[in-house]
Amino acid sequence: MGKGRKVSGGVTRRSFLKVAGSGAALTEVLTGCRPSAEVAVAEEQPQVATKVSVTLRVNGKSHRLQLEPRVTLLNALRHHLHLTGAKPVCDRGECGACTVLMDGKPIYSCMLLAVDADGHEITTVEGLAQDGRLHPLQAAFVEKDALQCGFCTPGFIMAALGLLRENKNPTLEQVRAALSGNICRCGVYTRIFEAVLEAAKKMQGRA
């Protein structure tokens, strides 16, 4: 125990993946993952990636951004476009709070690099209400009290919207399945199911 161990901190699986994905020198990153690496810190410093031009089409508007290639779609939306409806919760595709639609399909925006969303149509929760009027799904969440702290709510609404675009008249079991990638810690799932079924009914009536 006399000999101390040098440990370089802070390299997580995701930052490894992100840096590796951006083409930084792999060997340097790998040394950072080895807790007992006896390597001088200067050699471990991640390289700064060159920024690239990304065009994100969000809620019908195009935004041209200069981003490091490792920036996720979630962070591009939140940090660069100030659209904070999609939430960072688990940062690794486990909870669904960052769900947005890409070309109409729900995706975890924390698991996609912004560069890979270039050219695709992104819809966030901010894009649902029209002329100050809530989307029927949003209205149903309000009326059924399908939320408590509300931090998971945008993710649930986007996942539910993805379902209702594919299936206009889902059963309870289909709603459960579509929302099984989302976590609500306050635990109001049963009311979320009710809200989605109610919205489906309303949206059908409207169509």
Partner: peptide, 11 residues
């Protein structure tokens, strides 16, 4: 319905 629900469902 909670007063802050509209703010929460719209982001």
């Amino acid at each position: 319905p909670r007063l802050d629900a509209p703010a929460k469902v719209t982001g």
